[in-house]
Amino acid sequence: MSAVATAGTARPTRRKRDYSKLAVRLGAFAGFAAIALYFAATARGFVSPYNLTNIVEQSTILGLLAFGMTLVFAGTGTDVQKGGIDLSLAANAGLCAAVYAVLLRNGYGSAIAIPAAILTGMAIGALNGVAVVLFKIMPLLATLAVLNIAEGLELTLTENTVVPVSSPLIDMLAFGRFLGLSSLTWIFVVATIVLVAIAHYSRIGLRLYAVGGHKEAARAAGINNGAYVYGAYIAAGGLAGLTSILIVARLSSSTPGTGQMLLPVLAAALLGTVFSRRLIPTIGGTCLAALFIGTLANGFQLLGISSYWVSGVQGALILVVVAVTSFAKK
């Protein structure tokens, strides 16, 4: 036994912190399970295969946008209270949906409209990047301003009306099934796998989390921090563009009000942190959290509870999660 080995034992205070982190995670899983069991016992039809796939389907759009938020959290501050955020994400999706729908209505094909929607999302993301990295504006404020820009552009494009569209692709997305699962479900599964691989099993992901975890440490390791922050915002914007196509497909139109998705998106990305060992936003955690919120909305619906309550519950979830994780980290 060398003297170094004595330095190897973790200090007791650190141990205690480990238990509180573990407690948070177990509590989160237990909470999810308890609520699911409660709905299974009280809500008629909750456990039917149809309803369960319905939950996944309902969670897809929320989940994809929350993945975008997760990437932003990862690259700008895994401690969500001090780090960055993208408030413009949902409004960005609304704008992309408008671009997509308006292009289709004006006779362009999906081959043009889809890239256009995704590029629009990435452009808005890049704008966030410019504001945060180049102009060094506080992310909360910068992305709030960009939210307004995106919303304004959406209203200008659609004149605040519903833009109904239809195309073979939209029909396929809305009604197509493969191996008994809907298109949306498949997209959710594939997106989760791809993003898990990028965020948690690639160099880019590791470095992205390093930038968000400790800016100075990342810089000292020779990482170009700014590029990763830009990347996170642009990727989130791209995801918003991609999701906008699903939104249009589900509603067969571009409809005002997509921006209101912000609260559930934020709730899902924040709630995701309690499912991770490190108490940081992860793709897997966010996926679970999106399903959790989807389950809540679905259960409330089946029990006949007003949907207005869902919004309140989401707000409360944000408060509880942020409070609990910051206490567990202390």
Partner: peptide, 23 residues
Amino acid sequence: LLVPTATVAESIFLRNEPRFGPF
């Protein structure tokens, strides 16, 4: 200067990460 939320292995190899294919 280490990332508090990274593991020991990740910290040691940050920016010199060994790869297996793209992963």
